[in-house]
Design a protein around this nucleic acid. Structure first.
Lengths: 205, 205, 205, 205
DNA sequence: GATGAATGAGCTTTCATTCAT
DNA sequence: AATGAATGAAAGCTCATTCAT
């Protein structure tokens, strides 16, 4: 490996690292103030620079949320795919998905908040069509698990699975709004209690 | 009643009605596009007027959300207070509160959506301090019901009531985002299924 | 005189009186808040009506100032012309003009304030060309008196008459800004002291 | 001096210089068109920029007048304080104050015009309370000089000093409206003739 | 004569974005 | 990489004016 190449690599790596840093900062600000209500100046200030300087790193404000959300969704689906591809039963799949969701909230809290608050609005633009697509997959995945559970006689048959899906979706993602990693309840414990509450309600007894 | 008085009354009534109409329109638009992202011109357009004309009826964009939210909260608390003042047991209170919540969503859907999406941000301004206050009361009310249920042996003691409170809060209010009054599921049926799901999970068996 | 004609006359008279009332009110408001900074609504409010109602009486906000100023100037020039046509000497003319000026201020205080504050700005519009014309006549009249006084050996020759003219003009009209008819100093006493000061100076002799 | 420090200094200096330039332009426009009647766009145009660009340098239109007026008053009072602190007699103080006033007009003509035309209106806002305060000090200072002159037998006792103060104040500051630095009469000559007129009168003796 | 609702132009201000340095 | 000045579109809001009643 030539020194030249090493330089190029370390430069590229340093640049990527800087981007990641800036995106983390931006995500924090977008999450706390709301995307539309946050100015580029505020993001820059949080990163100790001036407004114009961000444009060296990013094309636009929109491209920042874009990167934040797509990075989060990519990682989320990697985790989900691993679970659904493991050949677990309906109940075990249900539990594993809940646990993965709370783990993701733990690692990507600001991104989850942004996703929760802004995705409906952003999704109207073609650039963010992947948000709609993700939501569709999300719905299919959960309905499949719930329906399989009903078919297998594991979940109650007298409740509307569409309704249950919505309740689960809402609680899980809204948890990002109040979840604090430093609280007395770690992500795993929240997942455990959440599973206990929901499962013992929808299970046949 | 003199004609003069009748005139004054009908004029004042007509004005109040017009305000209500405009507020309903504004609420719809704020709910669907987001308060910050909605322009006054858009609200006016939805009401078939020009931007400036709205200012004959309202002081500012802010005063519109203010009226929308406070009208909704006033009605909501009237319903809640009636329930909590009826001397019902923990479980019956729980059920009645859920039913009232879904009924309010049915009648004030756009206001609920706005409340859900914007109140965190709006509450930072002194003008909207009643939002914070309402949230505090809301929390106290639910915790009281849940704790009483635990004490009375009606609700399970091994779950964190703070956590349960949050799950309930999030699911109930977020329901406004997807609820459509014209759907196959009326508010009462949604409430019934929701109660079934949650209660049979947190009840001692 | 037919009753019909009397009605028409009394109606016309009543209308003229109402206009005069409204103009007096408007002058007061324009004088205290400034013409540009005063809204039509404020004028109307001071006259106990709604904004639109003024347009029954007047074409526009501009036509109100127009009437206020031209009425004032008409009366002022009638008084001035009487003085300059009386064949008085330079000093007596000087004194008489000062006295008439303060009398006009006494009767038309708000109009004078408006004239002082706004005429420079208004005069740029063709509609108000009479303001420029009036100012020109005013200058000519005073310079004639002062120059005649110098020629006659009544006024000092070592002072620039253009400068003296300006000083007189400024002090006399600005007096409207602080003059209050109810004060301890009536218009005539102010005129007397003013004349004494300008003619003889403030030094002891 | 390190290069870094020099850079910082020259940058800060350049910025201050630019602000001063823009303020001078704004003062010119405010003075000629009136503050309320001047639009921000007009100020910007006079400075060869677009309306929004001014907001990089100033918070608001109001903050521009604020800076213009307070800079002028600061300098004016520095000059006045020097005079009144010199232990001169009443007549010499009088003359020196007049001279300083005309010198200030010479250097700050637009600011003086703005002060004259707008301060009454601006002073109602707390932000401009210093205008009221300045006017109070101004009155006290002049009355002290005039009263001392009367006591010392230098000034006539048969004239109302309150009245004289007002005449002096009005003429001196209104002079800014017509004074042109390029005219045949320099500030000092105007001051000389003005002093002669007020002290000795315009009559031949 | 007056009301009240609406108009529409124009204002101050904000803010994402650009670009020379 | 970052600065700082400027752009220009668009926002919230004001206000003189109109007009049916």
């Amino acid at each position: 490996m030539s020194p030249r190449r090493r330089d190029a690599e370390s430069t590229a790596a340093a640049r990527a690292e800087r981007r990641a840093e800036l995106l983390a900062t931006a995500a924090e600000v977008f999450a706390s103030r709301g995307y539309a209500a946050t100015t580029v100046r505020e993001v820059a200030e949080a990163a100790d620079m001036l407004g114009g300087s961000l444009y060296y790193h990013f094309d636009s404000k929109e491209s920042m949320v874009d990167e934040i959300l797509s990075a989060f969704l990519t990682e989320l689906w990697a985790a989900y795919d691993k679970v659904t591809g493991s050949g677990l039963g309906a109940r075990e799949t249900f539990e594993a998905l809940i646990v993965e969701s709370f783990r993701t909230i733990h690692r990507h809290r600001p991104a989850v908040v942004i996703y929760q608050n802004e995705s409906k609005h952003l999704a109207t633009s073609p650039r963010f069509s992947y948000l709609t697509e993700s939501q569709r997959r999300f719905r299919e995945m959960w309905l499949a698990v719930l329906d399989r559970g009903v078919t297998d006689g594991v979940f109650r048959a007298d409740l509307d699975t569409g309704l249950i899906y919505r309740f689960i979706r809402d609680t899980v993602w809204l948890a990002a709004s109040w979840y604090r990693g430093d609280g007395r309840l770690p992500a795993e414990e929240i997942a455990r209690q959440y599973i206990a509450m929901v499962l013992e309600g929808i299970l046949t007894t």
